[in-house]
Design a protein around this nucleic acid. Structure first.
Lengths: 334, 334
DNA sequence: CTGAAAGCGCTTACAG
DNA sequence: CTGAAAGCGCTTACAG
């Protein structure tokens, strides 16, 4: 197991300069056929592979994109990460990943250390001065923050919440409950506003329980719901996890879903259609979201070429979310 | 928005050499207090941040670890990824992530381009010559391959499968079915062997359906099970997803779980205890697995210091997996 | 304690 | 088509 070959070793073996080796590898046409041949043989003989770190330093780019998400253990991100990595890999880019809640100093460094040249940001709660201080092409995906000076991509959460309200109303529900995400989360706030807006238009009576997207919070909300004197018959949870927790707890308390209460979620996670009952929800095309974000970012990176962040379209780019009707919602009881 | 400062700018402003700036930043004690003071002021004034790419090239390391998994969209990896990233971040390391099925050429490059100095490998099906050709500290996590010249970490899948067989037997089941993972997967093979071994010891009658860990495969297995003349009363699925698919399909076909059939899974994913019925399963401590792998790898990286892969303990390090009894298994019917 | 100089491993004008 | 040389932005023996 000998030390790995450097470009100089290849050059020596082939009897040419390192410049020629470099050219033979990166733009074969710029080199004579015979020379190219000899270089390639030397490459094979030495087992040479380029040192990307050195090339990147010289070219002042990293060929890498950084993904930042508020909680990597959240399975919602899995498909998004996979799609981003897939597109990046096709484009010859590497993917770096980090929890975005690693502390201000570390976070600043990540976007500033020369090891990434584009960022996919899935967190709308980072300090705007940090985000805007990164002089790197950046795209906001899913979550967003109007203070960030960067384009954004995602579903139209307000419109999606309208679908939810419309669905419950169509089934005859007159009093509905929203189990929301946390107050400081832009998705939660937007979904809630959208739901209440549409429910109001439709003349429904509304209530809101604040939760935090998790299974446990959903279960807790179910207990609060059960304790109510007049229980809403339709429930819209801000996430599928929350809805599954809600339903699970309802069933444990002896209620039937959707017989006693209709419950719907948001996201359409993989298990949604295998849950019992199968979950009515809003489908978020996460694979498409990730791929679109990566593609857009790569475009920006090509446009930027070290010129920092470039022209930002004011309007968010929306990806379609759709209502998926399954078995957890039904006609109002009685 | 001016160009970012380099170390030379700081040096000029502080009236010292770049060497001194470098020292003031990396080992403040090796520099006079007054000098240090002036340097720090210049750093603040210029907004200087080190260019990690340049430092890494000079120091011939990447301060980065690479995670390779066969399918990033698999939610099983979420917590592992989060834990690895957490430990890495604490150690000042960056995390690179890639699907391990990106093609031989790209894969070879990833471990060979100087941008990572350690690898967490979650795939036992890569070509051994590729894996062994990376001259980088590497640890196998969860999946493994005896042909890889690297230590491994994970639960004892054979012992875990014993627990499953023991559990079903203790409930009185005499004929049991295993819905396995794919034949070419080391986890699947090991779990199946362990289950059959223990079931044999306990005098149970056994059968196996080969599947592939997914929800759909579980549902398909349920249909095959239902079509059987003599239906096994206890079913052990090689993954929770598979078990959820199996149960879901059983219920859709009109069977009761666990009234008509006991079904258990493997992994203990987040939804397992909120599923209806709550899933009996084998708990894999994924967070602990990820953290342990990262810690171990970092140790190896410190020991290695460019010396390539070092001493490999033959025996795998096992992390405890435990049986979690919930509601999807019960006494044998009748 | 501090600086000048070499060098990490590449690429790329510039000449020829 | 090819090479010598400079340089990407750092760090680190080596001297003093």
């Amino acid at each position: 197991m000998t030390a790995r070959a450097r470009i100089k070793d290849v050059a020596t073996l082939a009897g040419v300069s390192t410049a020629t080796v470099s050219r033979a590898l990166s733009s074969p046409d710029s080199v004579g056929p015979a020379t190219r041949e000899r270089v390639m043989e030397a490459v094979k003989a030495t087992g040479y592979r380029i040192n990307a770190a050195a090339r990147d330093l010289r070219q002042r780019r990293a060929r890498s994109i950084l993904m930042l998400a508020p909680n990597l253990s959240n399975t919602f991100f899995s498909q998004i990460i996979a799609a981003v990595q897939d597109v990046a890999s096709e484009a010859g880019l590497t993917v770096q990943i980090s929890d975005s809640r690693i502390g201000r100093e570390r976070l600043v460094s990540l976007g500033y250390d020369g090891r990434a040249d584009g960022i996919v940001l899935l967190d709308g709660n980072l300090a705007p001065d940090v985000v805007n201080g990164w002089h790197l092409p950046l795209i906001q995906l899913s979550e967003w923050n109007d203070a960030y000076n960067a384009p954004r991509l995602g579903i139209d959460n307000r419109a999606a919440a309208h679908l939810a309200a419309g669905h419950l109303a169509a089934l005859g529900h007159r009093t509905v409950l929203h189990v929301s995400g946390p107050e400081d989360n832009v998705l939660a706030v937007t979904r809630r506003a959208g739901f209440l807006e549409k429910a109001g238009d439709l003349g429904l009576e509304t209530g809101v329980f604040e939760a935090d997207f998790t299974l446990e919070a959903g279960a807790e909300a179910a207990r609060r719901w059960a304790a109510l004197d007049a229980r809403p018959t339709g429930v819209f949870c801000a996430s599928d996890e929350c809805a599954l927790g809600f339903i699970s707890e309802c069933v444990h308390m002896g209620f039937d879903v959707p017989g006693d209460v209709s419950v719907m979620g948001f996201d359409d996670i993989d298990f949604a259609d295998r849950f019992l009952p199968a979950l009515t929800t809003i489908h978020q095309p996460r694979k498409r979201m990730g791929a679109a974000a990566a593609e857009r970012l790569i475009e920006m990176m090509q446009g930027a070429q070290g010129k920092g962040r470039h022209s930002i379209s004011a309007a968010p780019t929306h990806i379609d979310a759709t209502l998926v009707e399954r078995d957890s919602t039904g006609p109002v009881p009685g």
